[in-house]
């Protein structure tokens, strides 16, 4: 068990996220995205953020990915109907993304932070500690986010419902 575990998992996250955007078949994209989220869960475990690891596992890999897969199956999208951009636009997009990356890395070089990430208190990311913070300091945002979820639910049902009057 050494520090190289982080670098292995980091390499896997980058590799699978590249596969998400470059694979032709949308179903494969979703499956690669699930693996990417799993590597992020391992990152959270390595940072001892256990609550976030569980929530990431359940919400992202469980709920959101099932939603994506359901949509792909319902719409019956496959490789033949997959629209692709022209090569010129693809190269332009990759160059633009690389420019953003180079800008970020260049600004990072001038920062000179290289302190190792040290876990000072062992129970920082546990449910007990996070719950205390969430229900004292962040009580109002928590309630507001519940309203946001309700609005999203109503909005999703309203949007996806078939409009009977128009037809």
């Amino acid at each position: 068990m050494s520090i190289s575990l982080f670098y292995l998992i980091a390499f896997l996250s980058i590799f699978f996220s590249v596969m998400v955007i470059f694979s032709k078949n949308p179903i494969h994209s979703v499956l690669y995205l699930i693996i990417t989220f799993f590597t992020f869960t391992i990152h959270y475990i390595l940072l001892n953020a256990q609550f976030l690891a569980i929530v990431n596992f359940i919400v992202y890999m469980g709920a959101i990915m099932v939603l994506f897969l359901f949509l792909l199956m319902l719409l019956n999208l496959n490789e033949d109907s997959e629209p692709m951009k022209s090569n010129l636009l693809k190269i332009a997009g990759v160059i633009a993304g690389m420019s953003l990356l180079i800008t970020l890395v260049g600004s990072l070089k001038s920062l000179h932070i290289s302190d190792p990430v040290i876990l000072q208190t062992q129970d920082l990311g546990l449910v007990k500690n996070l719950g205390k913070v969430l229900f004292s300091e962040f009580l109002l945002p928590f309630e507001v986010s519940s309203i946001l979820l309700l609005v999203a639910m109503v909005g999703a049902v309203l949007l996806a419902k078939k409009d009977t009057k128009r037809i």
Binding site: I21, A96, G97, L108
Partner: peptide, 18 residues
Amino acid sequence: AIVFAIGVMGVLIRRNAI
């Protein structure tokens, strides 16, 4: 930063909304 840039590239180069 790398994963974020990959996300930006994905928005730029793909045409499928999903």
